[in-house]
Write a protein that binds this DNA or RNA. Structure first.
Length: 421
DNA sequence: TCTGGGGTCCTAGGACCC
DNA sequence: TCTGGGGTCCTAGGACCC
């Protein structure tokens, strides 16, 4: 039996989320900015038409703000995350099997759908998602995941009205691959794209015509898989259950410069506490923690970067234990006299809670710390994030990033729920 | 003035073991 | 003085993704 993969991808996802509740954002150019209102990370079609590029710094679109009717939003991840899970739930209801690939994309296993019905099936999914969630999606369908990606891109670009495209014959496959520039292929980034173009490999079709030993020589097995997938041989399966994270981190730029040890303590213990919550929510403990602090890379002033990596005697996810480690580590790397702009905390060596190796030489304090963390999680779940935290995390967190254009958390906070009057 | 954040996988090379 | 070969594990760095 033939395999059929679908790729459902939300169009301009963050912008589309903002448009659900904000009617004045429809039909005009809209962009959503990254954390700290730094860069453009989502654009409506109208904003794309204005020539606003993906990833450009926000200050470079200030002209558009003045002269065009451009609407700007700070990113509202509480909203996007919630809308995303609604879309994914709908896809789960409609499809035999779903792999959530990112906040706005999912692979679908459509192998049981008769091939002559695939297109209509795609149209129906799209129609229902639009009706149920107000999010427009595009769907690409093909015999491999990589080709479903290609088909999806093609649907967005050339079949915008219908938003569905199926690669179901050799002729169509060849035509699509010819019309897909190599740098637009999933898995071909800037570096490989440049290299391939230098070799006169300009389209996805050119790539599939290369001899296999060329691929083996210049690409890893990832490239080889892609090569085979583009030729129609399915190498990547659908994985319905997401694995636990292998790395958990929290890094942010600040809304203002930070110069004191005390403020950095607030920052890093806050970041560490967010990570600890993430670790507990996936029932993992960490063996290793790294922290770093840095000045503003884009500034001409004196630069400083330093990091430290520390091991725990026994893997932990307890906020208290972690914060003690952070405070000690920060003292090792902090140097007075710089304007700090960014910091981060990263946990690695993650192990499941129930598979923790004890340490002969350390007395286990299993522990009040654990209980305190669990209690705090409970309180914060009930009364809202940040209801209770450690004093070291500070109260007047003036270093927090800018988010001047933040929309309400329409679907996740009671007081923000839209009212009909 | 203002430039994001969180991930994955693979490979090469060094340390170490028998 | 002569000093092998096969293997594992870990880490850093690079490439990519959304």
């Amino acid at each position: 039996m033939n395999k059929w993969f679908g790729l459902a991808d939300c169009n301009n996802f963050y912008v589309s989320c903002e448009r659900i509740f904000n009617l004045s954002a429809r039909d005009i150019p809209v962009v959503v900015l990254s954390n700290n209102d730094g860069c453009v990370i989502s654009r409506s079609q109208e904003a794309k038409d204005l020539g606003i590029e993906m990833g450009i710094p926000a200050h470079k679109i200030s002209d558009n703000l003045k002269t065009k009717k451009l609407m700007v939003f700070s990113s509202n991840y509480a909203l996007y995350g919630d809308i995303s899970s609604r879309v994914m739930n709908c896809l789960n209801d409609l499809c035999p099997a779903v792999e959530v690939y990112s906040i706005d994309e999912a692979f679908l296993d459509l192998s049981i759908i008769p091939s002559e019905e695939l297109y209509d099936f795609g149209i129906e999914i799209k129609r229902k998602i639009a009706k149920w969630t107000k999010i427009p999606i595009s769907i690409g369908i093909a015999p491999t995941k990589s080709l479903a990606k290609v088909a999806n891109r093609y649907a967005k670009k050339y079949h915008k009205e219908k938003g569905v495209f199926v690669i179901d014959s050799e002729e169509i496959l060849e035509k699509i691959l010819t019309e897909t520039p190599i740098e637009d292929v999933w898995g071909i980034g800037r570096k490989y794209g440049k290299f391939l173009k230098g070799q006169q490999v300009n389209t996805a079709l050119d790539f599939t015509k290369l001899p296999e030993n060329f691929i083996r020589k210049y690409f890893s097995v990832v490239g080889l898989r892609l090569y085979r997938e583009l030729k129609g041989e399915s190498c990547l399966n659908l994985t319905e259950v997401a694995d636990k994270k292998k790395v958990v981190q929290h890094t942010r730029s600040f809304g203002r410069y930070v110069n004191t040890l005390r403020d950095l303590e607030e920052v890093l213990t806050t970041f560490a506490s967010k990570c600890a919550e993430k670790l507990r929510s996936q029932q993992s403990c960490a063996n290793v923690i790294s922290i770093y602090i840095r000045t503003n890379l884009f500034s001409k002033k004196a630069q400083y970067y330093n990091s430290i990596t520390m091991n725990f005697d026994i893997p932990t996810n307890s906020t208290m234990e972690i914060q003690q480690k952070v405070l000690w580590g920060l003292k090792q790397i902090f140097v007075q006299g710089y304007d700090y702009k960014k910091a981060g905390v990263c946990f690695t060596g993650l192990v499941p809670n129930n598979a923790i190796q004890g340490n002969l030489f350390v007395q286990e304090t299993e522990s009040k710390c654990q209980k305190v963390s669990q209690l705090m999680d409970g309180i914060n779940a009930k009364f809202g994030k940040g209801t209770i935290k450690f004093a070291v995390q500070g109260i007047n967190t003036t270093w927090q990033g800018n988010a001047g254009k933040l929309s309400p958390k329409f679907t996740t906070i009671w007081k923000d729920i839209p009212k009909v009057e």
